[in-house]
Design a protein around this nucleic acid. Structure first.
Lengths: 216, 216, 216, 216
DNA sequence: AATGAATGAGAATTCATTCAT
DNA sequence: TATGAATGAATTCTCATTCAT
């Protein structure tokens, strides 16, 4: 090979890295192995990414980009909040299985080894979602689709917490097992039930006050 | 026989290990450093625990025991579900700060490196909580304190998801930053607001149906 | 044919190499960096010079050529020996600062790494100077300008040793510091004193016997 | 092996390092090879010395200690200056052959790779010699054994320059070849001539003024 | 039984050199 | 012929684990 790495080759390298990091974590993953699996020399990897950590971050960013673009189309829809919530839950359930490596990458940064990136990465990753969710809730509040006695940012936080745990539960080994213990061994075959139950959980959280008012 | 170390010494060794693992993660933590900090020889550490991984698991179990015993008193109370929920949220908020090391240990097992323990550990760790929460919810359903059209195990799951994320958010660097982005830089000084908002979120989730019925 | 590079380009390449080698030494210097700084591709560098070592030698030879041509005009003068010595000391002092890179190159070959060139290079480099100095001294002996009970080759050797150390002392970091320790921190501002003192040192060495004779 | 390294073992390690560094230089020397040759594991080497550079400095310091102790007895003698000079020249000639590795180590620090230690090392190494020589010359001036119109520190500098070059000339490959070119292929068999010639060179340098005075 | 010095496999990283374009 | 991307051998350094004392 002599020509500059093609877009596809770079894709392949990142995918190989993601697979390795997702499985082994930043520390146990072996740069030489990644290079071999990607069909390149370590030299290339270092020329392009400088060091292991930077390469890891490149893999992570790619993972997040994919996740983000998957979510974007759902978030950008013009539906009412609960319809959107349902779409999002469905999307999360689907892509968590399909892109489990990406989610494992995301999970990886939350643990010890990557501590020093915590602040930067959080800002980079969560700001968009956070804002989107908050605005979504605020709008729903203005529209009267949602109770008005809440802090929209905190409710966005709780909502994202639930979706985050759902991601992990469909992608990461430990959380998968945990979900089975809570919901039953066959939970992965009961996707519709999971969706409808989570919707119930959310629906009331979002709308309680409304009915309360009507009730009075 | 291996009985020379006192109970207290073992405590100290495990605490030292927990501090190191919580800060650095399983891979970056250094067994020799842990031994030195604990005031013992590596030899002892290996006699007792066989290898690094096993020692890590011992530290993890200790962490979980502490967390469990902290939660137990709350779970075992005889209050109504929302009162209990409030107690639990308060407990989580308090101990997440105090015992952040333990929670970081818990977080550590969920990421890549520890994959092979996933199943065993999940069973060992989550079963108790899962059962407690489910029963709690079932009882509340029977007592009419909670809507009856839900799957109690799944609601227990969602509830635990929220508490788990809360733990992380008060203990682990990345999640801490994430919480600030969602809820504001000063969120750590607004504990009461966080509690009341989460209660609102839960309260309606748990009771929606009830009001619905009354409403009709 | 390999004639595409202009003379000037070759000059530039060698100068870049000399700068890099003088600063970092043969081993730590990086061929790729040199090529980049010289505005050529490594390929060209390898086409022209074969390998790093050969390129280093080319840089070294250029350095020595410059030094030699600088010294030549002084050596070739027709003055009496002490006048010539003074001219040489002045020349050395001046060009050691100006061409410090070249002298660092010379210094570099005297240490471990370049052992295998030792013999060839010494012959190539020192023969001219050695002969020039010896003849200079012999002539002075015949002319009665210098004591006659000495071995002119050895005196030439001592003389060159002093000049060599003077070169290093004005060019190479370590020797610069050493000179300050011996002669004072401000020695680099006392050029004239250095010259006159060294002349005194030499003058007597060269002429002692003469005065001795007269004295008797 | 399990007991702490004995004094002798440390000696052996340093000697092995010195041999390797003297031959190959700091960069080309291979830590793994040194460890193997010294009969230890790399781990020990790194436990004791931290990194390659620090180990190199330890080897260097050992070299210098040996050289210093060899010179000390001569410098400390109570003879007149020229007698002492002769003793020193003889000492240098003898130990330069015997301890050529140590001198090659000294030579090594003067070149590129070790640039960053230049200042510290020069202070550490040269200060003692510098002071000793200067005082020696000042005393000789006061005693009337030496001409009085000189700067003793500069003369000490020239004197040390001559001895330094003599060391290199009997120890380091390049300088050895150079000496042969200047003084003849058989120079290494004409030690007495070298000594007497260098003494003549120095003697007059030191005493010229005296005869001058008498002469008038 | 306890110690902790020693081990050495393993992993990250560099950079001289090659060779397809 | 020139290019410079790609190669991969080589080297430094770490640290889990062993075992003589």
């Amino acid at each position: 090979m002599l020509r500059k790495l093609t877009e596809e080759k770079i894709e392949e390298i990142l995918e190989t890295g993601i697979a390795e990091f997702a499985e082994k974590g930043l520390d146990r993953a072996n740069v030489n192995v990644i290079a071999k699996n990607a069909g390149i020399s370590v030299g290339v990897l270092y020329k392009y990414y400088g060091d292991k950590e930077t390469f890891f971050l490149a893999c992570l960013r790619k993972s997040l980009n994919v996740l983000e673009s998957v979510l974007k189309e759902v978030v950008d829809s013009e539906d009412k909040i609960l319809v959107r919530a349902e779409k999002m839950i469905r999307a999360v359930q689907a892509y968590s299985r399909k892109y489990s490596n990406y989610i494992n990458m995301y999970n990886e940064i939350t643990s010890g080894g990557s501590k020093k990136f915590a602040e930067v990465l959080a800002k980079e990753i969560e700001t968009v979602t956070s804002k989107a969710y908050s605005e979504l809730i605020e709008k729903a509040m203005r529209d009267g689709d949602i109770r008005s006695d809440i802090n929209p940012r905190m409710f966005a936080f709780f909502f994202d917490n639930l979706l985050t745990m759902m991601q992990f539960s469909y992608s990461c080994d430990y959380y998968k097992e945990r979900m089975k213990i809570f919901c039953g061994e066959d939970v992965e075959n009961r996707d519709e039930e999971m969706i409808s139950q989570l919707l119930k959980f959310l629906e009331s959280a979002f709308t309680f006050n409304q009915t309360e008012v009507i009730h009075k």
